[in-house]
Computed example of a mutant assay.
Amino acid sequence: MVYTPALVFGHGMPVISEEDSIVELMRKFIYQITSSDKGERQGSLESREDFDKEKNSSNIWFEPSVEYEEALLQRNVSREIESCLSNAKVSSLRCQVLLLPRPLTAKVARDVVRSSADEPCGLRGASISIYLESKNALLSLGTISPDPGVTPTFELSVVFKLDNDGWPPLKHIFVHDKVLKLRPEYRLVKKKLYSSASPVVHDFY
């Protein structure tokens, strides 16, 4: 299409040919569309930015960090250990009261989770055995399977130690030998089930 310049007549209003009139209408129409579209696109970009901001801010709450996931694992393991010790009071220890330092199970859970970090399945591939050492003898208190659906690839043995001194004031309240107390020290033994590597022993104080 050939564009011709507009001629000015009369009151200074431009007079254009029929073809140019169509062109001008098309220009206005295209301008309105592009202006509207530009506004919409700009709005959509702002909305997308707001959406991204909301998404990023929600990620803080809904996408747990490594530290948060590790903390959850530690808490779950700590609860499993406490449950195992509680059941062992009747089945293995045969005591009425089992006393243990307040942060003991939390510390053990932390070391159990960290010892599992370099394994292919992580903690899910562990078989955790709980023992009590007293007078150079080991008493089994139970086992923990973080994920029963996964075949264990390594074994972690947690060995608690009995405090034979006890708490003298409590001995006057409870029947003799019905109150047991664990020491803060414990041992963690890691053994790979499908490897000839020697077990790794860690003593924690």
Rank of each mutant, 00 (worst) to 15 (best):
R27F: 15
G43N: 12
K135G: 10
E18L: 11
C95L: 02
V175E: 11
K190D: 02
P103R: 10
D165M: 05
E49F: 11
P169D: 06
K135Q: 14
V158S: 06
S44E: 09
K135R: 15
L162R: 08
D52T: 07
W167K: 03
H172L: 12
P5W: 06
S196N: 15
V8A: 08
R124S: 15
F204D: 09
L170I: 10
E18H: 13
S196D: 14
E82C: 06
T34D: 11
E155P: 01
R124N: 11
V113A: 08
A137F: 10
K178A: 07
H176I: 09
P168V: 09
K89W: 07
P168W: 01
S58A: 15
L93F: 04
W61G: 00
R187A: 07
A117Q: 07
K107L: 09
L138V: 05
E155T: 04
K192V: 04
T151V: 08
Q42E: 15
L180D: 01
K190C: 08
L180M: 14
A197Y: 10
A88C: 01
P184G: 03
T105E: 07
E133R: 09
Q32Y: 08
S58P: 02
R187L: 13
M1V: 11
D111P: 04
V2K: 10
D177L: 09
S145D: 08
F51C: 06
R102C: 03
K171I: 02
E24H: 14
R48K: 11
T153Y: 00
P103Q: 06
F62I: 12
Q96K: 09
